[in-house]
Design a protein around this nucleic acid. Structure first.
Length: 241
DNA sequence: CAGATTTGACCTTA
DNA sequence: TAAGGTCAAATCTG
């Protein structure tokens, strides 16, 4: 039988599926101009992220997993806390063990980090390591959206023109879903090809829900309430959950 | 010393 | 003017 965590993970996935179906309806009806899809997309992303976080917390990976096996990119060449002994505010530094090590088939180089006003977590900015060499304009943003379990939202921008690596994408196959990543990312680089906002969702769900015709905003309101009921905050101090 | 990360400063945009 | 995005000097490590 499902454990409580399984139940929550399934519930989160179902919510994401419902939102994806609504999004599909919106796209099919060409209602993009009249309805903002961004909140819906974000809701979908959060749904999958949380579901993955539940699964991940339920099935923890061996902590000693070798980073050289499948983390060919975004792995710091050394400790990310080079100034850990400094006298600056500790809030500017983070523990590396919480940072996801995405293996999305591309090599990324961090070029910035900012504190976002709407989030108490910092956002990291990455660009393709071959940005200059191969004139690749692909970038990605990585931001923690939940503390415990740690959930990260990854946003891909631009298009990879470097064709750096394709092995991982081939491994995952053409039906890869790209969304927020939890600890270890699984991303299809080829899908991140929309010029501006490159969060890509390929929802293969065929189980249509009854919420497809309702207004997106109404659904989101209901979803928020349901979300709080289903997933009480892990941390009372986190304003986003 | 090369190459990567950190982080304050600067730029852009709404 | 504030907030987000980017730049680049400083710093660190192999």
């Amino acid at each position: 039988m499902f454990s409580n965590i399984d139940h929550k993970a399934v519930a989160a996935l179902l919510h994401g599926q419902g939102c994806a179906n609504i999004l599909k309806t919106v796209l099919d009806k060409r209602e993009i101009s009249s309805v903002s899809t961004e909140p819906l997309i974000n809701t979908i992303l959060d749904s999958f992220s949380l579901a993955l976080s539940f699964v991940n917390s339920h099935n923890p990976q061996p902590h000693h997993q070798s980073s050289s096996q499948n983390m060919a990119c975004l792995v710091p060449r050394r400790s990310s806390k080079k100034k850990i002994c400094g006298i600056k505010g500790l809030g500017n530094y983070r523990d590396d063990f919480q940072i996801p090590r995405p293996d999305d088939g591309f090599t990324w180089r961090k070029y910035g980090q900012k504190t976002i006003k709407t989030s108490r977590h910092q956002r990291s900015y990455y660009r393709c390591a071959y940005a200059k060499d191969r004139n690749c304009n692909a970038t990605k943003r990585l931001q923690m959206i939940q503390d415990s379990p740690p959930v990260y939202r990854t946003t891909y921008l631009g298009q990879h023109t470097c064709k750096a690596f394709t092995v991982q994408a081939d491994t995952y196959g053409p039906e890869m879903i790209q969304f927020d990543q939890v600890v270890s990312e699984s991303v299809t680089p080829q899908l991140a090809t929309i010029e501006q906002q490159a969060i890509v969702i390929e929802n293969k769900a065929t189980n249509h829900t009854t919420n497809q015709e309702c207004d997106i905003n109404d659904f989101l309101v209901d979803f928020d309430e349901l979300w709080l009921n289903e997933f009480p905050p892990f941390s009372s101090g986190d304003p986003f959950f």
